[in-house]
Structures are given as C-alpha cells and as structure tokens.
C-alpha cells in the first residue's frame, strides 16, 4: 500500500481531533483577534493610507510564536498521557508516517486560521488597488513560516510528556530563531564589534529574515528552501527523540 495513504489516514484523524474539542475554536478566535488588533491598533493599518498588507504580515511571526506552540504541544504529550502512543506505534505504520501525519495536520490547522484572515484582503481590495503578487507572496511566506514553527513545536512535544514544558521549549526555540534576525538585535550585535560576516551568518539562520523578504513580495528559492530545510531538520530530530523516548 502507498505510504502516503497511511500519512493521509493519520492526518485526517489528527486534523479532525483539533475540532473535537473547544481548543480549536478558541485558537481560531484568539488568532484572528490578535492579528486584527495588532494590525489595526498597533501598526495603524487605516491611518497609513496605503493599500498593502505590510503591517498585517509584520505581526505574523510574533503571533505564531505564541500560538503555534499551543497547537502542537499536545501532539505527542497527549498520546503519552492517554497511553495511545502504544496503540499508535504498534499499528502497521512507520514512525515517519505518523510524524508526517501529525505535522501536516497541525500545519493545515494553522493554514485554516491563516485562510480565515481573508476579510482583510477583501477590505484592502475594496479600499484601493494593492499588488496581488505581493499579497500571495506574503501569504506563502507566512504559511512557510508557520510550517517551520509547527515542526519545531512537534519536536518540542516529543521531548516531554508535559504539555507545559513542550510549550515553553517550543516557544524558547522559536523566540531564539526569530530574535537573531530582528533588526534591533542584529544592529546591536554589529555595534558590539561582532564581525559583519558573523552577524550576517547568524541572521541568515533566523526564521524572521527569510520572511521579511517574502512579505515584501520577493519569492526566492533560497528562502523557500530555508523553511523546508528547517522543517525537515526538526522533523528528523523529532523522529530521533520519539524513537528513543517512546516508553518514557
């Protein structure tokens, strides 16, 4: 049987399970309220009088920082707590298939949240004539960024049977990977006399710097492969961790 069918089966169960509890709806509302408030309240979307979504996308990394770990923290911790991990891993599927199923389910769930921000696009089109390409590119970048954060979250979830610990670990890793590309931090690094080459190298490892160019409408294969690389790396790490800590 095709391995993707197995991934699909795991994916559907995981994805549906988000909507089995109120968590999904709380998350969706929190995400939309937070993004809306930050876009309109903090970066003054209307007052800018510009028909582009730059202020909207600006906040995505920081909102994901807080909310993606909340989605992924249960993905292994919950299985451990209920003992279903024993059931799942003795079914005729490989660990990779299970992991990918879980990963795509969480990613798709964030995708739903992202898709529900469509009214802001409609509003922008209604008020002015924004550049469609930039918007598509921004959404693509945001979705890739979410994918990388989800992979980090899945990894953190594999580390501990406690959801709180998973949440904090995932938040810490994501925060670190954002902050090393955050302009004020990068500038102060340069001021401390860190060689420019090193500063550039560090900020190139940031989830933020690759998103910055995408939200401005630049699609670069380099940026896309960076995110794909982070996802592959984090999922591989999650696989190793899960494999060695199954019974823990």
């Amino acid at each position: 049987m095709c391995p993707c069918k197995q991934i699909g089966t795991i994916f559907r169960r995981e994805f549906k399970s988000y909507f089995d509890s109120p968590v999904a709806y709380v998350f969706l509302v929190a995400f939309l309220v937070l993004v809306g408030f930050l876009t309109f309240g903090m970066t003054h979307f209307y007052e800018n009088r510009q028909a582009n979504l730059t202020p909207f996308f600006f906040w995505h990394p920081w909102v994901y920082l807080l909310l993606v770990p909340a989605v992924t923290m249960g993905s292994w911790a919950e299985e451990r707590r209920n003992g279903t991990i024993e059931l799942l891993l003795t079914l005729p599927v490989t660990l990779t298939q299970t992991l990918l199923g879980k990963f795509f389910a969480a990613w798709a769930f964030i995708g739903v949240a992202l898709a529900l921000t469509f009214p802001i696009v409609v509003t922008t089109y209604w008020l002015g004539a924004p550049d469609g390409g930039t918007i598509v590119c921004g959404y693509l970048g945001s979705f890739l960024l979410a994918g990388a954060s989800v992979a980090i979250g899945i990894f953190a979830s594999a580390l501990s049977r406690s959801q709180v610990i998973s949440f904090v670990i995932s938040l810490a890793i994501c925060f670190f990977l954002l902050i090393i590309g955050f302009d004020p931090v990068v500038n102060s690094l340069a001021q401390w006399g860190v060689p420019t080459g090193v500063v550039n190298a560090v900020s190139q490892c940031s989830l933020l710097s690759h998103f910055d160019s995408m939200r401005r409408g630049v699609i670069d294969l380099y940026d896309i492969s960076f995110y794909v690389g982070v996802m592959v790396f984090m999922l591989a790490a999650a696989q190793v961790v899960t494999d060695s800590r199954k019974a823990a």
């Binding site: 399970s17 089995d20 509890s21 209920n82 003992g83 279903t84 024993e86 059931l87 003795t90």
Partner: peptide, 15 residues
Amino acid sequence: CLGYLPENAPSYRSM
C-alpha cells in the same frame, strides 16, 4: 499480523 491490547486499554477518548 498482530493484534495488541495494551495495558489499561488506551483509545482516543474524544472519538
């Protein structure tokens, strides 16, 4: 080829 009933009979409770 294997059927397994783990200890404490775990299952996905919300399903």
